[in-house]
Write a protein that binds this DNA or RNA. Sequence first.
DNA 1: TTAGGGTTAG
Length: 440
Amino acid sequence: MCKAKQLTRAEIVIIDGIRLGVIPDVVTYNTLIDAYCRFDSIDAGYSVFHRMREAGIDPDVVSYNSLMAGAARKCLLSRALDLFEEMLQSGIQPNIWSYNILMQCLFKLGKPDEANRVFQDVIISSLDPCPATFNIMINGLCKNGYTSNALMLFRNLQRRGFVPQIFTYNILINGLCKAGRMGAARRILGELRDSGHKPNAITYTTVMKCCFRCRYFDGGLEILSEMRSEGYTFDGFAYSTVLAALIKIGRIKESDEIVEQMQASGIEPDVVSYNTLINLYCKQRRFDDALKLLDEIEKSGLECDAYTHTIIIDGLCKAGNIDGARQHLNYMNTLGLGFNLVAFNCVLDALGKAGRIDQALKLFESMEVKDAFTYNILVHNLCKARRFLSASKLLMSCLKRGFKTLRSTQRAVLDGLRDSGYTNEARKLHSKIRLAQLLR
DNA sequence: TTAGGGTTAG
């Protein structure tokens, strides 16, 4: 039975109770508010909240915390802040959890200074901060780019007797990895092991992802096998991470092995796992297998998404079947998936690479949205077709729009202009490029 | 009630 139905049944039980003279109290209502916010919607939680008032029962701090947490979970951050205000105005004293949620919302809103002010207030108040309070602070600081401050807070807390939890270590390791501070991340990982905690699945996937991001693929694969030997169950997320990383660097044989392991582990693939597999088959030019997977997705009750079709389009382009790719692009439009910039960019590049530059230009004109990829692709292909003046004009309009241009794109145009005798044009373009760099 | 993570293009 789904959660919403279970909740409806829970309410029926309460109504039956009322008929029998059992009046629900604030705890019963709070349980329902929390469950509705968690498994249904914040509005459903609100509805219970109002009915509670109508029944003459006053909401308490737990009722407000449940609503605030529900709003924060759904990223309705200003709504959560309004609830905090409303609680204060109703004369209800917020507890440490109200402040925890408030800090979390302020961090998510990109207001670390305000979150820090709340934290300082908590510290000097009579409220007892709990481990989650510190974890929320460390995480919020990391997420807002204040990794050094997060590390400093961590050390200060340790000096004052705070014993970090696995949560704390994971938050910090993730923050340091994302900030590129690998040495510090490694030190904290060592401290985690020394503390007697065992790294958990989250620690492993965090570090593994970081290895892949730094292009340290063998290190990532080692973590994968260590994780397996430690008995951690792998899920679709971990497999897709590894698989996508291997495909990207062209280690196709190892990709096949991962697919076998994934299939043997009995994990039910979701759309993203299917998409990653389709990408692998496309890279191997196994289009029949890729199309079989499309059928399998539909049969399993899942729906192909924009990624699925874009991967197919790119695969067809890379295999030289541009007309097939264009057909699939049209088909994609009929599915109501909307305009997909990546798919258009793939076709644009394929047309250019195949020497069909006029068709590429026509496609470019027809595109309702363009990005840095679009411009760089076309500029490169115009250079390939030795149409350097057009390439230069396009590159300038790309710079004017504030899009990033690749150094290789700039070089292709400048060299081409000079080699073809357009030295004035080359000088003009060069100064425009330098100006754009200065303004960045 | 606080932590991580997956898919496409130059």
